[in-house]
Design a protein around this nucleic acid. Structure first.
Length: 428
RNA sequence: GUGGCUAUAGCUCAGUUGGUUAGAGUGCCAGGUUGUGGCCCUGGAGGUCGAGGGUUCAAGUCCCUCUAGCCACCCCA
């Protein structure tokens, strides 16, 4: 088709899907609010440094997957690829840091990643998430999970499972990493080149390697939970106890990891049975006690999750679409179209959604159009009505019509619609 | 970033081994007598066959490049 099409990996949110997503998001914000999480909104772009520091030497992410540009002042800026670093930044740059800890925050908005697009994977997509900052109590990890879980439950999403793991912290992870390397050392010759490279660059990532999972070489690999230090072990136990108290079932997943060093202890994802392979994760989260310092701030523990709104909306059971406008006001040519316009405007002031067609098409065409638009009734203003200072009010369902006084439209129309609704319900 | 599949009206798709002015359904607009809708009938608008090159007397159909979508991999903060 001629014309300019949208950039690769973007999507137009049309009325139906947008209404769906908005409903899904509202539900999330409400659940979060019930747990004391208050919404914040950070800029859509940030200093590039904010994201580079967080991901460190993950070169792919930095060099390949960020929307980075220089503004006219020569500053390097980046469209936000995720929400956690900005929220932590906002925490330190505001008086939130003086609030009693933890500070509970939620956020939602567009994120940008220069990925290869695919189904359910866009370069501009939308996330909803919560962060609890300034408290390292394990019960908080469970709380964050509970917010996510209650949200999905409330939406009626079926077939979900909570995948849970603990990946240790600065104290015990080095030893675990070594154990992992020791295990794979003698197997090096059997490893695909890709996994040898992973082992060198980001050892934990071999645990979720697809090739290795298929080969069975992972079966005997050491598990993070067996190498936790005592404090991590105790914390994980408390997370599980708290989840039990919430009544939230979970599945231990020893291959669930995070690729970045600032993540510690609890890591979780929620999977859906209908989502396949690379996109089976509805959302993920974890504890990021090391992030604040990486960003150049004083230490501050934190835990949170982020969910892809597109995917959640896709899985939420059908949300009833917003009702169509109740009324259409039609002029019947050659009557003065201004009368229809004015009448429509008056009825709208009563809070009724009104479509108006004051154009030159035939009344037949307008009625046919109103029918397809799904309105319950129409008001017709033609020459004879104007002469009598009335409007013809017609119900589409039973083809009955009455005349209402033009002068008292504001009262007559709502009353007429109410009466029609009562009759309609009575016959059901 | 790598490999594979795909690309024809707004939408869903047909288009035989390359062969005249490219079709259907649906949607859209109009008409079926003078101001009254869902069905039906008739008509109309709408496509440089994703874009650009090439082969050929002839390309929607074959070849190349690009773009976009989908799938797998990479990555997934």
């Amino acid at each position: 088709m001629a014309g300019i099409s949208r950039p690769r990996g973007t999507d137009d949110l049309l009325p139906e899907p947008l209404a769906r997503m908005a409903r899904v998001l509202d539900a999330g914000l409400e659940v979060a609010s019930g747990f004391g999480y208050r919404q914040v909104e950070t800029p859509i772009f940030e200093a590039t440094e904010l994201f580079v520091r967080g991901v460190g030497d993950s070169t792919d992410v930095v060099t390949r997957e960020m929307y980075t540009f220089a503004d006219r002042g020569g500053r390097s800026l980046t469209l936000r690829p995720e929400g956690t670093a900005p929220v932590v930044r906002a925490f330190w740059e505001s008086d939130l840091r003086q609030a009693p800890l933890p500070v509970r925050l939620s956020y939602a908005g567009a994120m940008f990643r220069y990925d290869r697009p695919g189904k359910g994977r866009y370069r501009q997509f939308h996330q909803f998430g919560v962060e609890a900052i300034g408290d390292s109590e394990p019960e908080l990890d469970a709380e964050v999970i509970a917010v996510a879980w209650r949200w999905l439950q409330g939406l009626g999403v079926e077939g979900i499972s909570l995948q849970l793991n603990s990946i240790g912290d600065q104290e015990c992870r080095p030893a675990y990493r070594q154990a992992l390397l020791d295990y794979f050392e003698p197997l090096a010759s059997q490893l695909p080149a890709l996994d040898r490279e992973r082992l060198r660059r980001n050892p934990l990532r071999v645990l979720d390697s697809k090739e290795l999972a298929a080969s069975g070489l992972l079966e005997g690999a050491p598990r993070t939970v067996d190498h936790l230090c005592s404090s991590c072990r105790e914390a994980f136990e408390r997370v599980r106890l708290a989840l039990t108290a919430y009544g939230i079932p979970f599945q231990m997943n020893h291959r669930l990891v995070r690729g970045l060093d600032y993540y510690v202890r609890t890591a979780f994802e929620v999977w859906h049975e209908q989502l396949q392979g690379a996109q089976n994760s509805l959302f993920g989260g974890g504890r990021y006690d090391g992030l604040s310092e990486l960003l150049g701030y004083p230490p501050a523990p934190g835990v949170g999750f982020a969910a892809g709104l597109e995917r959640v909306a896709m899985l939420a059971p059908t949300v009833p679409a917003g009702p169509p406008p109740a009324l259409a006001v039609l002029s019947a040519p050659p009557a003065d179209p201004g009368a229809a316009i004015a009448a429509a405007d008056r009825v709208r002031r009563r809070g009724i959604q009104v479509l108006c067609d004051a154009g030159g098409r035939s009344l037949r065409a307008k009625l046919s159009w109103a029918e397809r638009a799904g309105v319950r009734g129409v008001l017709i203003l033609g020459e004879s009505e104007l002469e009598r200072r009335t409007v013809t009010a017609r119900l589409l369902a039973d083809r009955t019509q009455v005349e209402l006084p033009l002068r008292a439209l504001e009262e007559a129309v709502p009353a007429w619609l109410e009466g029609a609704k009562a009759v309609g319900e009575g016959t059901r």
